[in-house]
Amino acid sequence: MSLKHLTYDYNNPVDALAEYSRSRGNRTFIVDESGRSMTYGEFYDYAARLANALGRLGVGYGDRVGIVMSNSIESAASLFAVWFLGAAAVLIDPLTISEDLDYQLTDSSPKVVIADKAVIEREGNVLSKFKVIGVGVSGEGILNLSDLISTSTAGLKPVSIKGDDVGLIYYYAGIAGRTMQVWHKYASLYSGPYAFGEAVGLGNNDVVLVVAQLSHILGLTEFLSALVRGSRAIIVKHFDTNDTPGVIRKYGVTVFAGVPLMFDQLLNNKNLDPRDLSSLKIALSAAAPLTPSTQLGFYQRFNVPLVQFYGLTEAFVLTLQPLQYKDVTGTVGTAIP
């Protein structure tokens, strides 16, 4: 079998967003579960204002910025604010325990840490060692993100970055048995999500539900795939078996990627109206094996194909089960382009 080789229009996601802010600036790009939305142009300007604020705090090319937040428009914009400056975002799970959070922040030495209220209230002692920007909170040495943005200008020319510059750092133990840094270069932050979107068939009319955390490769892939493929992203703080179907129905979500437990819970939710999921054209499962009963049962009950894919924290998505083989269980499919 011959593999399809892709060509890429951009060398990083920053250039893609900059072009989309010009060519489709008035088109809605991102929406959260409360209904708050931003167009491509608004999202670009919001991230640019935050980038200018970070610049005033001393963040520059090659520096690192910690992001410890649940999914939100602010967490997504924080990524691009960091990237506009040519810095690297250190994405950390907001539920990381104190000992691990302390290690990851100390090891990565960020110039600034951006965190939401829940993290700041829980991890004040750890964060006290760093310059912190808070979302929804301020005081006691915490800079308020909204205040910083409101006093910043929108005009910004992103720093010229090279494809092999490091744009993102995860911490992952894997089979090594100890937590280590995983680096993603700017080029892979575009090519990896783009290739996944190509394999799934993401296009301008698709609506992608981003329910896995951006601090995990699954959530990041969902979000960046929506961006680089010109789709709309619906970003929610967490999965809820009762609330998530309503989000899918309200916004006409067409693509939903999650972990097997999410699909188990949806399938076992006896009160769930199948019409709530009727907009989905595909559901995708990763991170753990999907049982045949869940995979086939999901399709039988909701008439939505549920397929598996496989990826790595170090490498985005590698394989995807083709839709024409949706009735086949126990496979993660074939290599994507």
Rank of each mutant, 00 (worst) to 15 (best):
K250C: 00
V207M: 05
G58K: 03
L168S: 06
D327E: 15
I175D: 13
Q321H: 06
A283K: 02
D100T: 10
D102Y: 07
F130S: 11
S279L: 03
G192D: 08
L284D: 00
T334N: 03
V159C: 05
L54Q: 13
R229Y: 09
G246C: 12
M38Q: 14
S70H: 15
I97K: 10
T319A: 11
L50P: 00
R24P: 02
M180F: 10
Y190M: 11
Y44R: 03
G163C: 04
V304N: 06
L323D: 10
V31Q: 11
I161L: 02
G252W: 06
R49G: 01
I149H: 05
R36T: 11
L148M: 11
Y171I: 09
G41D: 04
L209F: 01
D327T: 07
L189G: 07
A315K: 13
T313R: 11
V332C: 07
Y325A: 15
T179D: 10
L214W: 04
I142L: 11
G203L: 09
N11F: 04
T291G: 03
Y194K: 11
G230M: 03
F130K: 05
N303F: 04
G230F: 14
D240W: 03
R232A: 15
S138L: 08
L57Q: 12
A187L: 08
N12W: 01
E99M: 14
S285E: 07
T153E: 15
L168A: 00
G174Q: 01
A288G: 04
G230A: 14
W83C: 06
E198L: 08
A288K: 06
Y20Q: 02
R229H: 13
Y40D: 05
D32R: 06
K111H: 03
V255H: 13
N52D: 05
D147R: 05
S225N: 07
E123T: 01
E42A: 02
A176C: 08
G258S: 10
D45E: 12
H216A: 03
A18Q: 13
T319P: 09
L261M: 09
L320M: 15
R301M: 06
H238I: 04
A18M: 06
I234Q: 06
G163S: 04
T96Q: 09
T254K: 15
H216D: 10
A77G: 02
R56T: 07
Y40G: 00
R178Y: 12
K117I: 10
P13V: 05
T39G: 01
A88N: 14
A257D: 00
S37I: 00
V90E: 14
T28P: 05
S98V: 13
G62W: 10
S98Q: 14
D264Q: 09
I120D: 02
L218Y: 14
D206C: 02
S146A: 04
I217Y: 05
L202M: 13
K131T: 12
L284Q: 01
E222M: 15
V14H: 04
D15H: 04
K270F: 03
S128W: 12
K131V: 14
S78Q: 02
